Simulated assay, not measured.
Amino acid sequence: MDRYTFQKQLELYRTPYEEEAEFIADFAALTEDPLAYKRERLAGHFTASSWIVNKKRTHTLLTLHRKLGRWLQLGGHADGNENLMEVAMKEAMEESGLQNLRLVEEQIFDLDKHIIPERPHVPEHYHYDVRFLLEADMDEPLQISDESISLAWFSFDSVADMIGYNPSILRMLEKTSKSEILL
Rank of each mutant, 00 (worst) to 15 (best):
H45F: 15
L42W: 14
I24Q: 00
R66F: 14
S50W: 12
K113L: 14
M1C: 10
L183C: 04
R171D: 08
L142M: 04
H65N: 13
L151D: 07
P117W: 00
N166F: 06
P34R: 00
R41P: 03
G75D: 04
A88V: 03
L84H: 00
T15M: 03
E11P: 03
R102K: 09
G69R: 08
H59F: 12
T31Q: 05
Y165P: 04
G76T: 09
I149V: 15
F154D: 01
E147F: 14
I116C: 09
T47V: 08
D79K: 11
V122S: 00
P117N: 10
P120A: 13
T5I: 10
H59P: 03
K8S: 12
Q107E: 13
A43C: 10
N83S: 07
Y17V: 14
R171F: 06
R39Q: 14
L61W: 10
H114I: 02
D26Y: 06
W153R: 02
Y4A: 05
L64Q: 03
R70G: 05
Q107L: 04
P123E: 13
P141Y: 04
M85R: 09
R14I: 00
E19L: 11
E174M: 12
R41S: 05
L12E: 15
S148K: 11
F132Y: 13
R57Q: 09
V53P: 03
D139C: 04
L134K: 04
T60C: 15
A29H: 08
T5R: 08
S155Y: 01
Y128W: 09
I24V: 15
Y13A: 07
E20G: 04
